[in-house]
Design a protein around this nucleic acid. Structure first.
Lengths: 339, 339
DNA sequence: TTTAATTACGCAAACGTTCCCATGCAGTTG
DNA sequence: CAACTGCATGGGAACGTTTGCGTAATTAAA
């Protein structure tokens, strides 16, 4: 279709073999500086670009990183992606973004696609449906560098970057308790996600430490993570239908928080009078909501940056990396009118 | 790195040549049905996946579509991408997303990267800095299918998908006029974008048709399209510093609208008492803002879908497509309290 | 029975690049 | 002057796949 300029064309034009041209372009010490200069200048002139597909076939790095998240249309992830890109761009890497839409099947398909297009590494935030990790374990065992962020797993030993979810929801819950709320509910994501567990843990700890009994009925899991508004609405209805209506709620994700606010409006529940809300969200405009919303903000951009740095570190490491750690970044609780 | 299963492995295991295996997998008529069955079953069994990199090298389609937008962290674009993906996924295409961050340079680099990874086609929404289109013209002339959406150009003859921007901002402006506002400002994106021109046109038309003089000073261009909050704040300050302060404003993009609302809060300008606002935005939660905001909503998801269908149509067309059209989709004005 | 057609398969080139292994030549050493 | 070294370069295989062409075996037609 496009007849791109190849190394052969250069060779032909200059009366050199392809091997010489290839070496000259890579600056091999074997090539005389005159020839190098000649080749380099000519290549520059005709605007030669090596064909990355051919490079991939030869098994060389192609300086691209695959990113898979559940949903781009989500403040947290889009900010994280911007962080990823900010580092990748500086280090000469391209990023290829893919979405799982919280579907296990799509996650598998997309990860295979990325791997088979021979990205040099993968930045992964798991879908909420994912329980079986064999697709990733396979790739990891074959040596593909992988770094997890936000939604991680401990079935794979590699670098992970997460927010201090446990502490964040502990603080949020404690804040509510200190404000005098006693019947605090928790609306959270799919039960098997790492973030769900961590956030639930913090919530529980805060309750028990303050002598409030943990009530299972106050915890609502949303398997679609807020992608479906009905789900949140159901959760809210189910909470408000209980004999002991909760007077506050800690929400565990970006979409859940905004959807919940929407749902309270729809069901005419007054915030914070009837129900106080403090939620995880990375919206840029929490103060514009009615009421301005008390938020737990994750350092999304920074998480993306850190994850990318770690990934590139593995990719560029001469020897296989075997010592990994999990970076835990601080969150930020900002109190506004909703709680 | 990963030793994937190749066609050779299958051949070796089955005592067949690679060509036979290849043909059997593609269902060639030259291969006996027994052999086909044998190969197919074995391939299935060992979970063979053709190497897309090798396929690309051979110049075959690889069923992937490159998408470039200015910014993912933008309701309009993330919804459009979801629309793109919904079609692509059904038709067996993968999408590779890239951001220009409104930078011409990044747009060029990323488009080259996508093209050189031999995507089958490109879905493009131009960056606000882009004036020179030679990078795209080149690819287009070489036969790479390209469809533009939202931010288009008429320098390239291909399919385009846009919202009816002219009508949308005409309607919005008319709505303000009907509400009694007379001093209507317009905060918009970079001056050279197609959407900017179209939206400005509608704004102007509404004014003149209602006997209101068009005032150049009431139009503020934001070259970063709302990516920088300061820019919007400056625009607002500059408007409010005029002798004849505007009493209403039509904002021309997602980020501009929310940033403007933020800025009014910061500068303690009451909406809609001191300044009415109606804006283009695709936020899912316009009713949650304070005040609930009057919006012009673009059919982002649908635009993505239509653009993708058209692109795949070009990609899969046997003969070169030469007749193109520009699809114009309706927008939706929803009146809320901000105007 | 000979010849032609058909079927079912293999060989090898090609895509663009890298890289190991020559090869030729100049200069140096003994 | 033979043997070696170092240098600059070329030849060609390899990566995984497709595909044009060739060909053996079988079958059908003459």
């Amino acid at each position: 279709m496009y007849e791109a300029i190849t190394i052969k064309d250069i060779g032909k034009a200059l009366g050199l073999s392809t091997s010489t041209v290839s070496r000259a372009l890579r600056g091999s010490y074997e090539i005389s500086s005159e020839t190098k200069k000649l080749v380099l200048e000519y290549a520059e002139k005709i605007n030669y670009r090596p064909n990355p597909v051919a490079l991939s076939l030869k098994g060389r790095r192609n300086c691209s990183i695959g990113v898979i998240v559940s949903e781009i249309a989500n403040n947290f992830f889009s900010q994280a992606i911007n962080g990823i890109e900010s580092i990748a761009y500086n280090r000469g890497y391209h990023i290829i973004i893919s979405q799982s839409h919280e579907s296990y099947e799509r996650e598998v398909v997309n990860i295979h696609h990325l791997a088979s297009r021979s990205v040099d590494g993968l930045l992964v935030s798991l879908s909420s449906e994912t329980k079986d990790l064999s697709h990733l374990i396979n790739l990891h065992e074959k040596g593909l560098p992988i770094v997890f962020f936000d939604r991680v797993t401990n079935e794979i030993n590699t670098y992970k970057v997460i927010a201090d979810n446990q502490k964040a929801s502990y603080d949020a819950t404690t804040h509510l308790i200190n404000k005098g709320y006693k019947k605090i509910a928790h609306i959270t994501s799919a039960v098997n996600l790492s973030i769900t567990k961590e956030r639930l843990e913090g919530y529980k700890n805060a309750l028990t430490e303050n002598g409030i009994a943990y009530n299972e009925k106050y915890v609502q899991y949303c398997n679609h993570g807020g992608m479906m508004t009905e789900e949140i609405e159901e959760a809210l209805k189910s909470l408000m239908a209980q004999k002991q209506k909760p007077d506050a709620v800690v929400t565990a994700s970006d979409r859940i928080t905004t959807c919940l606010l929407s749902a309270t409006k729809k069901l005419k529940i007054k915030v914070p009078e009837q129900l106080a809300i403090v939620g995880f969200t990375n919206t840029n405009i929490p103060e514009l909501f009615n009421p301005p919303i008390t938020t737990i903000r994750q350092p999304a951009f920074e998480m993306g940056q850190v994850a990318t740095e770690l990934l590139i570190k593995i990719i560029e490491s001469k020897r296989p990396v075997t010592e990994f750690e999990t970076k835990v970044l601080d969150t930020e609780l900002t109190v506004r009118e909703s709680a």
